[in-house]
């Protein structure tokens, strides 16, 4: 299977503190990979490096052969863990923005998703509830036909009902042509859709395996294993 993302020996420090150390993993086309770890374990650092938001790192990061930058970014659909679309935008303007800059954006699909959520297009994003805002962001991101979707804590900040909806949305828009890399510290909800799990502790990979294989070999759920491994940290 073609490798969409390849990371080898990635190391990034902030001054004396080392955020991540010797990170190596691939994301293959058609797979959903979970970067799992408690807050501060380095998930966002890895993601920001992939997106070109952090320069000055050691090791190699390549997205279909491109280093992080504008060309790579045209193939990646990114959902950061902050509200990156100005909240005073109307929903319609946000859609227009994506359509303007991303060739692979499917505005019709985005509008359909928002209509299904009963979100009127002429509302300002900030007038929506927090959970709704997350859903709007996610809808826009998943309406792109990108090679790689990078989702940083897509379910972190929302209520359990919204979580289910978000996971459902991710699955609905995943067509196996691209790949998904997502990070979270809430494992139970997300484990059914993961192909590969990567456990991250204090900047290092401590586990990297196929999820069903873990279940077979260890007779445990991913969530249980996660809690066990991180019981001193979480």
């Amino acid at each position: 299977m073609e490798k969409i993302l390849q990371i080898s020996n990635l190391t990034k420090s902030y001054g004396k503190t080392q955020a991540v150390r010797d990170i190596t993993f691939d994301v293959k086309k058609g797979s959903i990979v979970g970067l799992l770890g408690p807050n501060g374990s380095g998930k966002t650092t890895i993601i920001k490096t992939i997106m070109g938001l952090l320069s000055d790192y050691g090791g190699n990061v390549s997205i279909k052969g491109e280093a992080p930058g504008p060309i790579a970014n045209s193939r990646i659909s990114y959902l950061p863990d902050v509200a990156h679309i100005p909240t005073w935008f109307k929903v319609s303007r946000a859609i227009a923005f994506f359509a303007d800059f991303y060739e692979d954006f499917d505005a019709v699909r985005a509008e359909a998703m928002l209509a299904a959520m009963k979100i009127p297009l002429d509302k300002k994003i900030k007038s929506l509830s927090r959970g709704m805002q997350e859903k709007v962001q996610l809808s826009l991101v998943m309406s792109r036909r990108a090679d790689l979707y990078v989702l940083d804590e897509p379910i972190g900040a929302v209520d359990p009902a919204s979580r289910e909806f978000i996971i459902d949305t991710i699955l609905k828009n995943f067509d196996g042509e691209g790949a998904i890399l997502l990070s979270t510290h809430i494992v139970a909800d997300i484990e059914p859709i993961l192909d590969v799990a990567i456990f991250l502790r204090e900047g290092e990979i401590i586990l990297h395996d196929d999820v069903d294989k873990i279940r077979e070999e260890k007779a445990t759920s991913l969530d249980q294993l996660f809690r066990e491994v991180f019981k001193n940290v979480v």
């Binding site: 996971i167 459902d168 699955l171 995943f174 067509d175 196996g176 059914p192 192909d195 069903d212």
Partner: peptide, 17 residues
């Protein structure tokens, strides 16, 4: 595969397997 993945709420690759 897609329809079943959505129905069961799991990864399509799992269905494929």
């Amino acid at each position: 595969v897609r329809v079943m993945a959505l129905y069961y709420g799991v990864n399509p690759n799992t269905i494929q397997k």
